[in-house]
Design a protein around this nucleic acid. Structure first.
Ligand SMILES: NC(=O)c1ccc[n+]([C@@H]2O[C@H](COP(=O)([O-])OP(=O)(O)OC[C@H]3O[C@@H](n4cnc5c(N)ncnc54)[C@H](O)[C@@H]3O)[C@@H](O)[C@H]2O)c1
Ligand SMILES: NC(=O)c1ccc[n+]([C@@H]2O[C@H](COP(=O)([O-])OP(=O)(O)OC[C@H]3O[C@@H](n4cnc5c(N)ncnc54)[C@H](O)[C@@H]3O)[C@@H](O)[C@H]2O)c1
Lengths: 212, 212
DNA sequence: ATAATATCGATAATCGAATATCGATAAAAA
DNA sequence: TTTTTATCGATATTCGATTATCGATATTAT
């Protein structure tokens, strides 16, 4: 238990998904080595990751209890107590996010969606509110998480509006760097950054193939 | 120049966006310190990042040429020569990806989109092909990048199909761990992982506020 | 009952990335 | 012209994360 590294934290959701899969297949125990193989990690890393979120030790020759790991990771990630969020910008991407049923598995519930365009009224059973209602909604329901899916030129305005109303954590899908006070959490979902990595790995692979 | 770290690579797109913004504002030179402030990095890190992709040195008292940096980063990231990609799964998310005009700025062009559902015919000017056409399409146009936006239970099948047809790099939006040979590049766009981080940071902030 | 084996946890070593330091230098100010 | 200042690049240090090692132990096989 105790402190946890950023890297470990980011691996946890994937472990959890895999372990739930094993659970579904009726697997009761699993060795760190087997999990390591699936994700291309070392077994030491897997054990360390598990050690940082679970009190329970693995057993020699047997491994870890799948049920116990599932319970501990879900607990650690807070998947049991749901966080409520607002979404601003219900265009192409906002539409997808709003329709996605998977977030509730991750402890996230989009309880209010807002757009400046009055023609967008209903998406996947969610009523879309006018942007003018955002502030009072956040305050009234004490929402702490805001999701930004507006064009980049509006993103800073929405960000400021959210923070002014009480939002403490922002998940930003707009490709821009938002200026925020230091007591606010932010994650930029930067697809360009992922693409840069993919593209570099592709180049390496192609280069290797050529030299053979 | 020479080798580049994964971390640096992933920061480059954000630098580039910011530098283009400065360029638009007519700024000619910029100090590493100023950029560091925007992104909450140290100036040393910014200088190191720049050094790893540009031959040109910064000048004392003046900083770096914005134009030159924009040129060198765009060049390095390969934003000038466009990579063609296929997309499989044109549901909510696939729809958003296909409609997104921003990818071409990152050197990516989705030239073919496929779905198993024959009712999905046209999205944002893109004709949607039946899945049965995927293999021949990839082969015919020599596509190297595949984007997966199908439900997770179909993701491995699509992945195998893509690789069989010649795809070398996969951008996977499905929340699952795909099994691939080692000469294939993959990036999992794992939103749960981002959320885990955001949620942890939020907790920290709330804890801090409470203790004040 | 004993030996062999798979797996563990703890600790140590390595690795890679971020940061600090400092001497050099271009530009601006005196 | 000289001094001051902002900024740089190179090098050294620190930090955090990954990987290697090894003794301990639960299970399985003999
Ligand atoms: N579509 C994608 O796949 C994708 C991928 C990566 C990033 N993004 C980013 O996500 C954001 C949204 O992309 P999109 O494709 O959905 O764009 P979009 O144009 O389809 O949707 C934007 C929506 O925001 C609304 N809007 C505009 N200004 C607003 C404001 N001030 N307040 C409230 N609503 C406002 C618009 O009415 C529209 O409904 C953009 O910043 C885009 O760069 C999108
Ligand atoms: N919607 C989101 O915001 C979001 C966010 C994160 C991850 N994802 C993931 O992205 C994937 C797609 O999500 P979505 O919301 O668009 O789902 P969706 O159900 O709206 O769309 C899935 C599409 O895939 C098609 N499809 C199904 N099986 C196929 C196959 N074998 N070959 C080709 N096409 C097939 C379906 O016809 C449908 O059009 C899912 O794995 C989801 O978990 C979605």
């Amino acid at each position: 238990m105790s402190s946890i590294s950023k890297e470990t934290l980011q691996r946890l959701p994937a472990y959890l998904r895999h372990l739930k899969e094993l659970q579904k297949q009726g697997v009761e125990n699993v060795a760190s080595k087997a999990i390591a193989k699936v994700f291309n990690y070392t077994s030491v890393q897997v054990r360390k990751d598990f050690a940082s979120i679970s009190e329970e030790a693995g057993k020699p020759k047997t491994g870890f209890s799948v049920n116990r790991l599932v319970k501990d990771i879900a607990e650690f990630l807070g998947y049991n107590n749901i966080n409520e969020a607002v979404l601003v910008g219900v265009g192409n991407l906002g539409h997808a996010l709003l329709s996605y049923s998977g977030f509730k598995d991750y402890g996230l519930d989009i309880v209010g969606a807002f757009d400046i365009n009055p023609n967008i009224k209903l998406v996947h059973g969610h009523k879309i509110y006018n942007l003018s209602k955002l502030e009072s909604f956040i305050k009234r329901f004490n929402i702490l998480i805001g999701i930004i899916a507006v064009p980049k030129d509006s993103a800073q305005d929405i960000c400021d509006l959210m923070i002014g109303a009480g939002i403490k954590a922002i998940w930003n899908f707009s490709p821009c760097n938002l200026v925020i006070p230091e007591n606010i959490a932010i994650i930029n979902e930067d697809m360009a950054s992922s693409l840069a990595l993919l593209s570099q790995r592709l180049s390496k692979i192609l280069k290797k193939e050529k030299n053979q």
